[in-house]
């Protein structure tokens, strides 16, 4: 086996996964797939096939089972994306409050189309309502909520990220 085709899950993540498994009846391994993928995605930004292989190996499940899960849930990115993920909710409540303008503003500002990614930003094509309708229009940046958006607010959020380095 070729070593650069191999991903060793860092031991702290293995420990977390093993702890996670304690929540389930003895012998059930699949319930940790989603959690493991979250952990690996956090580490690597997106999920490559070697990651899927390694999860399958660690949990002793079929690769196709892991692949099915990775491809089903919208939070798992299987293609290379930028460092920060921005998801603007464009569902009904947000749309009624101008989320489309917010999205176009971000597209222009970051110079990426929705669904696409630059090195720094991934502008996710978010179809699902993010459960903050009372704060519409809203978005998530790396899964943190930002509500009642205005252009000024967006400028500041982006500036903060860029300053952060």
């Amino acid at each position: 086996m070729n070593d650069n085709n191999f991903y060793n899950i860092p031991s702290e993540i293995c420990v977390k996964i093993n702890k996670w498994l304690l929540k389930f009846p003895h012998g059930e391994k699949k319930p940790a797939i989603i959690f493991a993928l979250h952990q690996i995605q956090k580490e690597n930004k997106y999920i490559k096939t070697i990651h899927i292989d390694s999860v399958a190996r660690l949990l002793d499940v079929k690769k196709i089972d892991v692949y099915e899960v990775a491809a089903f849930y919208s939070m798992f990115e299987l293609e290379k994306i930028g460092k920060h993920t921005i998801s603007v909710c464009t569902n009904v409540s947000c749309m009624l409050n101008g989320s489309d303008e917010i999205l176009s503003y971000l597209e222009k500002k970051l110079n990426i189309k929705v669904g696409k990614s630059s090195d720094k930003f991934f502008l996710k094509d978010e179809r699902e309502c993010l459960a903050a309708c009372a704060g519409a229009p809203m978005m998530q940046v790396n899964h943190k909520y930002y509500e009642n958006l205005t252009k000024d607010k967006i400028d500041k959020i982006i500036r903060d990220i860029e300053d952060e380095k």
């Binding site: 089903f72 849930y73 798992f76």
Partner: peptide
């Protein structure tokens, strides 16, 4: 009581899809 976390799928709100998801499958 255990906390569990999904990964983005409206359908998992449906109760039996949620059970599938908890079991580590697609919803």
């Amino acid at each position: 009581i255990h906390d569990l976390i999904g990964a983005g799928a409206y359908i998992v709100g449906e109760e039996t899809a949620m059970l599938e998801s908890i079991e580590g499958k697609k919803g």
